[in-house]
Computed example of a mutant assay.
Amino acid sequence: MIANTRVVLVRPHYAGNVGSVARVMKNFGLNQLTLVSPYADPLSDEARRMSTHGENLLTNAKIVDTFEEAVADCQLVFATSANVEGLYRGSHYGRPDEVLPVFVDSLQTGPSALVFGPEPHGLANAEIAQCHGLIRIITDHEYSSLNLSMAVGICLYELRRQFAQRTANYQTPPSRQIANYASQEEMFRHLRHGLEAIHYVWGTKADLLFHGIRQLIARSNPTPVEVRMLHGLARQMEWVAAQLPPKADDQPSGGE
């Protein structure tokens, strides 16, 4: 089950870090490494030298062009960041021990992803906004930025600890199948279109308002049936909007 964990490195810059991540993944029994538009060469001598028995992870690493492609088939997608300021980051973060229990549960029915940003500046707000949660590792406030492989190691240690605890307790696997990331994203796009059609999501605050709606739904870990239900809601809003006479102006009817 724990092998369903996917480690996603977004635009990694340094080959040594990629190799070190492969090593720590090997330590904790993981084998799904995905690189999004990497600057670093995972097959370089430096990466191999730092991987120590994790060379097969480098050889088999999947390289993709976009974040969406990396996580399309995943159920839960959790980002990591030391920066938790602002609406997109501050509304849904927690420590590894707080966030990872639900992540471990999801692994019983399919893949889920832990996403780590590029070394110079971490993940962008737009990337974090697309995730279902945010992991923050508590560090000293004077220097909060961890080395990439250290951050991966801390998260994977807690993941393994949570997994071992569940195995020891013989917990029954959950019956809920979480809809994969790609189908959720399609639903969110459709839902936003429906909300825009009825002028609930509208104007200068549209992005922030829909982000809140998105996080509310994402926290429920919607099933495929629930995703289809939300598609139906979006279609109904589109139908209602089409029946209404044109508005005299573009002022929103709600949501602000």
Score class of each variant (00 low, 15 high):
Ala218Glu: 08
Leu87Gln: 14
Ser175Ile: 00
Ser91Trp: 06
Ser145Trp: 00
Leu208Ile: 10
Asn83Gln: 08
Glu256Tyr: 12
Pro111Thr: 11
Pro120Gln: 09
Thr66Phe: 05
Glu68Lys: 04
Pro222Val: 02
Tyr143His: 12
Arg95His: 13
Leu244Asn: 09
Thr52Ser: 12
Ile217Trp: 12
Asn180Cys: 08
Leu9Gln: 00
His199Leu: 12
Leu191Gln: 11
Pro42Ser: 08
Arg189Val: 11
Ala40Tyr: 02
Ala206Phe: 07
Ala70Lys: 03
Ser37Pro: 02
Ser220Gln: 09
Asp97Trp: 13
Leu35Asn: 01
Ala197Asn: 04
Arg219Asp: 08
Gln75His: 13
Val24His: 02
Ala248Met: 09
Thr52Lys: 13
His92Tyr: 06
Val24Tyr: 04
His92Ala: 15
Gln215Arg: 13
Gly133Trp: 00
Ser20Arg: 06
His92Leu: 10
Ile178Arg: 01
Asp105Lys: 10
Pro224Cys: 08
Ala72Val: 10
Thr172Leu: 13
Thr59Phe: 03
Tyr181Gly: 07
Glu98Gln: 15
Asn125Pro: 05
Pro174Asp: 05
Arg214Trp: 12
Ala61Ser: 13
Ile198Ala: 04
Leu30Ile: 08
Ala61Met: 08
Glu142His: 15
Arg49His: 14
Val7Asn: 00
Arg166Ile: 02
Gln108Gly: 11
Val64Phe: 09
Ala248Gln: 15
Arg23Gln: 06
Ser106Cys: 06
His13Leu: 11
Lys62Met: 08
Ser81His: 03
Asp105Trp: 00
Val201Ala: 15
Asn180Lys: 03
Val240Glu: 07
Leu156Tyr: 03
Pro173Ala: 14
Gly117Pro: 02
Val36Asn: 01
Ala124His: 02
Gly254Val: 01
Ile138Leu: 06
